[in-house]
Design a protein around this nucleic acid. Sequence first.
DNA 1: GATGAATGAGAATTCATTCAT
DNA 2: CATGAATGAATTCTCATTCAT
Lengths: 193, 193, 193, 193
Amino acid sequence: MAGKGTKKERGDTRRRIQDVALELFVRNGYEKTSLREIAEILEVSKPAIYYHFKSKEDILLSIFQDLSRPVDDIISWGRQQPRNLETKQEILRRYSAALEASVPLVRFLRENEATLRDLKVGKEFGQQMTSIGEMLTDSDTSLTDQLRCMSALLTLHFGTFALPNIPGDAQEKRSALLEITMEMVAAAHPEEA
Amino acid sequence: MAGKGTKKERGDTRRRIQDVALELFVRNGYEKTSLREIAEILEVSKPAIYYHFKSKEDILLSIFQDLSRPVDDIISWGRQQPRNLETKQEILRRYSAALEASVPLVRFLRENEATLRDLKVGKEFGQQMTSIGEMLTDSDTSLTDQLRCMSALLTLHFGTFALPNIPGDAQEKRSALLEITMEMVAAAHPEEA
Amino acid sequence: MAGKGTKKERGDTRRRIQDVALELFVRNGYEKTSLREIAEILEVSKPAIYYHFKSKEDILLSIFQDLSRPVDDIISWGRQQPRNLETKQEILRRYSAALEASVPLVRFLRENEATLRDLKVGKEFGQQMTSIGEMLTDSDTSLTDQLRCMSALLTLHFGTFALPNIPGDAQEKRSALLEITMEMVAAAHPEEA
Amino acid sequence: MAGKGTKKERGDTRRRIQDVALELFVRNGYEKTSLREIAEILEVSKPAIYYHFKSKEDILLSIFQDLSRPVDDIISWGRQQPRNLETKQEILRRYSAALEASVPLVRFLRENEATLRDLKVGKEFGQQMTSIGEMLTDSDTSLTDQLRCMSALLTLHFGTFALPNIPGDAQEKRSALLEITMEMVAAAHPEEA
DNA sequence: GATGAATGAGAATTCATTCAT
DNA sequence: CATGAATGAATTCTCATTCAT
């Protein structure tokens, strides 16, 4: 244990950069967050950041890839399931849980879409959403039913960020929201209900 | 007709700046659009832009205020109606129409939230959304029913931008989407249905 | 009298530009005063200003030449007098009076020396001061006596602007200041006293 | 000696920026000196300047604070002395010496008053002058005597910059000027002389 | 692992001035 | 007499990034 507990844990810097960066990205947006600011808060020099990450974009990408693994897992899992009501509802349940664990990141991705569009992270995030969307819609059902399923996803996703505007207990609101999306996909599968 | 059709229509510049600006804002985002770029496309000098608008933000604000008047009208109208199912559905219908007329602007507002947060335009847009949200929710009903109404709005709003991902005729998809939101608020008003 | 008393007196504009310009020059400095600002206060267009004056510098020059005529008169008069104590004291008396009438302008000239150095107005003002200085000093007297006379002028000139820092009645302070300069030149003319 | 004399001495840049800046400030005035010009003369890029100073104003402030310390010392010292003729004369002697060491800076401060008024440096300089003025005047003596002391300061201060206009040896003129101010304060203290 | 120093590129904005009408 | 519209030139400043040590 000797040597531990010194001012900064060894190998910690990379993680600390990610933490501070995410916080600033969320609070001020990607473009309005400068590496100078990050460096100042961490009390390290700017080149120190470049030692750990090869660019500003790379910091964001690493954060995204660390946090978005659960969603990738949902997608892998979902692809191996039969595409029925049961599966769709389970996907929404799992997505809701995954979302909850990374609200700040996802809020950030949402609020900076225009900026991230040209970045790798933007593309990867977009693909995730598209993949989940595809797993929820059957192209051989009615347009309305397809939209119902898509809307369920949108409701879950964007509803999560609108919840703070409504009074009530956070967990309760979460469940209620999930409940509503369950109903929405159910309505798109009349025969299975 | 004499004198018309000259290189640049008189008094046109202000409008042309707004048009080009909106186009670039939508395509590249607010921060990544520079006044130099706008000026170059219009083949005018940068100060020419400053003659018509006092700042970059001011260009955006003027665009927003011009295009968002219909939404203001909806809000004024809605406030004078009884808050029942009928009204809510009419609000959604009208909002859907208003949205349709300014899809590019609203997409832009959505995709640049982080950037616009500190700008007047961000605040005004936020207030509009809040106002519409309030008109759709009754604080004395169940949490689930409140969320149903809120989700209807989110579905309509965000669904509009997700539609291109689904195959089918644009107008048809629009109506289907609106239809779904109608169901959602209806579900929140069991006794009135 | 018909036609008078309309919103703006005819031919008045030139004078009004000078007035507003001087006020802004004094308050904010020459460089920090823009023609836009002047035009806005007067509620005229910028080209209207260019109708009356050929440049920003020209506005200042016209103000200076109008207000500095009394000093030119002192110089003309002084050059025709014998260069003795009597004359010098009379010059200081007259300069004090002239100064009093145009305190704002002279304060402005003082506080913007660096800026005005390259301008015609700076050169003309400098020549005036040099001329008065020359009339007060005899190059065939002792260095100390020359400095005494020079200092009398500086005391009068700069003292005028330092007076507000000292409590007391304005007119009284003025006379006291003049009195001191009288003593100073008198000390430089021991035989004549 | 190895390693010395390379193109640019290490750690030198900050000082070199101050030197060049002061030179240009003095020669052309604060507003007419651009950072581009400073950078060009030093053959560095503009951001290099911003690495060492956070703004243009900050460059000036750093110069002022470095050079004005002697005057601060005089003020501290003076405040602990009895306020009599002896002290006042010593203050003037010390101020004359301090002034001599930083003639270019003080000339600059004088010639750019209007510009510097809104800047921190302007306020700090103003306070210095006010403090010295206060140490030279007793509010319980006659108005004329107060003015005599004040004028002594003005004579010393402004006379310094008028001296080049008078022929003679620089050091000699300096002493003569100081001598005159000594007489002026002495005249304000008849009983102590 | 880390830093001091520096850079190229580019941003928004302001100004005095002009010209056609 | 006056204006609407526009311009060339310049300004301060910020950013992501790099390199020698």
